[in-house]
Design a protein around this nucleic acid. Structure first.
Lengths: 110, 110
DNA sequence: ATTTATTTATACGTTGTCCGATCATAGCAT
DNA sequence: ATGCTATGATCGGACAACGTATAAATAAAT
């Protein structure tokens, strides 16, 4: 579980266990055991050190994140619009109407 | 740090340390120490048990999330609409126009 | 005053974590 | 091929820290 994620993240970063151990300040033997799965219950402080060395968040280690980087970026742009929309009191229903109308508009564009 | 978050989340849920201990299966004396800060380096498995009992994610315990629970829920509903919008090819600009129009419409409603 | 919740103390079993040694693999020189 | 050396991964043992269980002391509440 958690070992696989660490292993995956480490390989993505193209460094060895020894290297990760050195950077994080964690014993390489322990990192090996974590990845191997013979130990699977690290403390959060240790996990934090490993996460830092891998330049990811603890969350990235706990549940393996769907990357989707570009898509996330776009979502953020939309997000500000959404906030504005919610603040101005536009309802979801109104937006849905708008959506349907636009779909129709696009289809009948030719 | 982490103790304060657990304490906060527990109080929000309006349960006692004993209750949390019972639900999570963690010794109440240890939970007390965690909240008090005399112990501050729990294992992730223990943390997971506490998180489950509090009905939050481990992330919620690690970095204290901007809560706004209801708002988050609404956001999710909006999000599905946004995805649909993006898929159907509606641009941000079009949406913004719609937004402006609706603001005006609301203002001149009387 | 009596209950209920929190903190602290003590003692103890379990395991997280480190250190050093060993094994595995690969490259390079002989 | 046969070694030698270097680097990475794994194993075994030792110790400190995690975590439990209980009781007692304190505080807060009804």
């Amino acid at each position: 579980m958690i070992g696989q994620r660490i292993n995956k993240l480490r390989l993505e970063k193209k460094i060895s266990i020894s290297e990760l151990a050195e950077r994080s300040g964690v014993a390489k033997s322990y990192i090996s055991k974590l990845e191997k799965g013979t130990k699977a219950n690290p403390s959060i402080q240790l996990l934090e050190k490993v996460a830092d060395a891998l330049e990811v968040t603890i969350d990235d280690i706990l549940h393996d994140k769907a990357p989707a980087q570009e898509e996330e970026e776009i979502d953020k742009q939309w997000f500000s619009l959404i906030r504005e929309a919610m603040a101005s009191g536009v309802s979801k229903e109104q937006f849905q109407e708008f959506l349907e109308f636009n779909k129709w508009k696009i289809e009948n564009k030719d």
